[in-house]
């Protein structure tokens, strides 16, 4: 009697959530758990303490109400918001102006086929220098740049604006050059094939294709800048943060409430503005 062919052993296809399948994978999971534990220990992470601190937090919050709506405070708040706004806008604009030429230099161009070694070096040196400058600008947080400029130029919104400009230049330069590098290459290649120079390929081939994204990225950077500008005042670099710090030091929490609320409104407003603008520009 012929036996029925053996049914192949049923095996689950795979789980949706990834899980370690090799000893190495298991070790990695163990490692992540270990590092997490060490971090909890290293930061004195303690939920009990958080619960115990509820009292002082509640006192702080309750002292914020009612917010201080006196004419003097509102005036200071208005000034601080306007200054913060101006700092963020100028920071993004200046940053964008610094970023554009550096991004152009820091954009890899494939047209080195058949080029001689000196020609390759002549192209690689400015490329790497521009990338290095952008990396330095970007990797130093804007609040550290603010400290540097405050030491050099004294207190006020000017050093804060410069700090935002330098950091924005680093961020935007990196994003611009990546946008310029990833545009569809066929039109650029067509220009190269008929003898267009590097700058011509950039201006007529890459830039038009990257412009909408570039504009959108600039507006996003402005959005980030207004958040940063709000705290640069903590190191004396102008903006509403300075007022918040002063009020905190005077334990004037109802004034802090007004300033903080105004900051939230301003940030939300710029968020909305920039998002609407970006939707319009992206094609």
């Amino acid at each position: 009697m012929a036996s029925a062919p053996a049914e192949p052993a049923s095996r689950p296809v795979s789980a949706v959530l990834p899980r370690p399948r090799t000893p190495t994978g298991g070790l990695i999971v163990l490692g992540v758990i270990g590092v997490t534990g060490l971090s909890l220990y290293g930061t004195d992470f303690d939920l009990v303490e958080l619960v115990a601190g509820a009292g002082p937090i509640e006192r702080f919050v309750s002292q914020m109400f009612p917010p201080d709506l006196s004419v003097g405070t509102l005036e200071k708040t208005g000034q601080g918001i306007v200054e913060t706004f101006q700092m963020s806008l100028l920071g993004a604009l200046l940053g964008s102006l610094i970023a554009l030429p550096l991004a152009a230099l820091g954009t890899a161009d494939a047209a080195t086929i058949g080029a001689s070694t000196p020609a390759r070096v002549a192209r690689a040196v400015p490329y790497h220098l521009a990338r290095l400058a952008l990396n330095v600008f970007r990797s130093i947080p804007d609040i550290l740049w603010a400290l540097v400029f405050v030491v050099a130029l004294g207190l006020g919104p000017f050093p804060g604006t410069l700090a935002l400009a330098v950091h924005s230049a680093g961020v935007l330069g990196k994003l611009y050059s990546e946008t310029l590098e990833t545009v569809p290459l066929r039109p650029v290649e067509a220009l190269r094939a008929i003898g267009a120079s590097r700058i011509q390929r950039l201006l007529f081939g890459r830039l038009p294709q990257a412009a909408a994204s570039g504009l959108s990225l600039t507006m996003y950077q402005w959005e980030c800048n207004i958040r940063s500008a709000a705290i640069l005042g903590f190191v004396g670099a102008g903006g509403i943060g300075q007022e918040i710090l002063i009020a905190m030091n005077l334990f004037d929490y109802s004034r802090v409430a007004t300033l903080a609320a105004a900051t939230i409104v301003a940030v939300l407003l710029v968020d909305r503005l920039s998002a609407a603008g970006r939707r319009r520009f992206v094609v």
Binding site: G114, A115, P184, R186, P187, A193, I194, P208, Q209, V283
Partner: peptide, 24 residues
């Protein structure tokens, strides 16, 4: 070299299947 290449390429016209133009 770069300059001579571009002078030579100036006399070479290209046309691709598609996407040879800058769409924007």
């Amino acid at each position: 070299g770069d300059r001579a290449l571009r002078a030579a390429q100036r006399r070479i016209g290209v046309i691709y299947q598609a996407y040879g133009l800058v769409p924007q």
